[in-house]
Design a protein around this nucleic acid. Sequence first.
DNA 1: CTGAAAGCGCTTACAG
DNA 2: CTGAAAGCGCTTACAG
Lengths: 334, 334
Amino acid sequence: MKTVTISDVAAQAKVSKSTVSQFLNKRYDYMGDKTKQRIERAIEELGYQPNIVARSLKQKSTRTIGVIVANILHNFTTEVTRAIEDACISADYHTIICNADDDPEKEKHYIEMLRAKQVDGLIIFPTGGNRDLYKKMLKDRYPVIFLDRKVEDISISSVLLDNEMAAGLAIEHFIQKDYQRIGMITTSIMHHITPRLERIKGYEKAIRRHGLPFIEDYVKSAEPTNIQQVLEDLLGLEEPPEAILAGNDLVLIELLKYVKQKNLRIPEELAIIGIDDVSFASFYTPAITTVAQPTFEIGKMGAEALLNKIRTKNTENELFHYRFEPCLMVRDSV
Amino acid sequence: MKTVTISDVAAQAKVSKSTVSQFLNKRYDYMGDKTKQRIERAIEELGYQPNIVARSLKQKSTRTIGVIVANILHNFTTEVTRAIEDACISADYHTIICNADDDPEKEKHYIEMLRAKQVDGLIIFPTGGNRDLYKKMLKDRYPVIFLDRKVEDISISSVLLDNEMAAGLAIEHFIQKDYQRIGMITTSIMHHITPRLERIKGYEKAIRRHGLPFIEDYVKSAEPTNIQQVLEDLLGLEEPPEAILAGNDLVLIELLKYVKQKNLRIPEELAIIGIDDVSFASFYTPAITTVAQPTFEIGKMGAEALLNKIRTKNTENELFHYRFEPCLMVRDSV
DNA sequence: CTGAAAGCGCTTACAG
DNA sequence: CTGAAAGCGCTTACAG
């Protein structure tokens, strides 16, 4: 497999490399018809494919972006990255996905690696643990967009869910169905992850807005592996909640496992809403009421915002934090 | 953001580019200690990051592989690609995932694109519709592994599930639980997709092995959107099946939607097994009996086989088709 | 122990 | 309308 290069084509077509290059880049402006045809034939005969690595080196663009997700286990992440890939492919960009696994060290490694690979820009679901690196990218005017989360005092634009509204929709639905004792569980807030904090705030605001008492014991955060215990505690309270909002898909799954194991009836013994419209919600028994994120739109917007930054060479630096509205999917678990 | 190159480092450290390059590649053999330190400082001071594109051009390796999946909507695909990515990252390779969406044209585009991008090799879940391209890669001795599927008469190594065994395990479990009238539904077999054909064959063999009549009307293939209708037909037969094997996760989901809509009791009115151990199987009510594929091992093996081909420059061309054994997860739906 | 030079496969002013 | 030459940022024999 001796690779055939532009020189081989030039030789075969009896023109110069420059002319072949013009041809490849469709700059036909002044090219003679016979020349074009000769080149076309030569390419055909030799089965020539341009080497994009060489082109990238010269053009200083790889037409590839990097996506660093905080944790690929979330259904949200999978759907959003799929939307990003779609949007990039349409714009003739490729995508390299990396999973930071909630670990700032890994995130750092990937940011450096992808920049070394000369990707044209980065979409990051930030762990929050690499403030210096985030700042450096900003200083370098390197194109970056944050997704799903933002980082305190780092002026990188982001596309997010309206998380307060997401929790609010759920709580209001509970209240409307006459539930008063409403609990909430999220995954760990140790690292100040935006959506978790904001959803808790949204919960509290909605509770107070409706004149219900805000009971701290009703709000719990824990790693998925500890959620069974948390539920045990929560439902063992003297006045246990009658309804629970699961802060994301992983929490919902733990909650459903618990419910099954304890043989609780939904919604009679415990009403449930989950944030994230998981695949099985509609055909679960009972069908699960959820708050859906517009994952496709979020991913698309993230990709377009980044591609736009890349195209404008990041000159217009208007900072934005775009919020998408969630949507309540009313089913049978409340 | 004027990029700092190896020349800048060389100038700053007052050595030649060659020496810096040696340093970067950890060929310290004969390097003076003071030289090393000077280079180290210069790199530090300038915040230098090597340009991997330039290196790739020279070394003719991008340390990146491409993965072209037939259809990313299958849970199997997501899990396997995740395992591939993990294995590649450990070996210090990156991964570019492309979704052919069951469309041979898209597959073709991605194969050509990724080769132009000089990825070091390709893992393909083949659509089957690009025989000439597959052959060309073989002729070029370009490293490729097929995954999940193989293609008739194309001698590219593959890693697969033992699909006949997968169907066999399910059927035997049904029989053991005293079901005799057993149906099976797969997604479309129009394009002779390996796992679907093999699973149907496994079904037939198991049925015959146990002396049951093989009833053609009990075996259906259809696109997911038509499965509701297929179920309607199947269960409207004079002697409808009392048990159904769902050929993959998408079929199972359609089946569960149908069951819910018709209010059928599982397993009393209809027993169910699904191939692919979907996330919700264990906490669904009733918990769904499934045949699990070792997705992690399959992905890992695929990646390792490819990386091995890349390392040996594809010289040892022993053809293999490795089969992984599935595993029956007995739960409550039979 | 270190440096000069060539080369990887392209693109891009510039000259004619 | 086309070609010669320089250059993108590295690596790698080779010479000393």
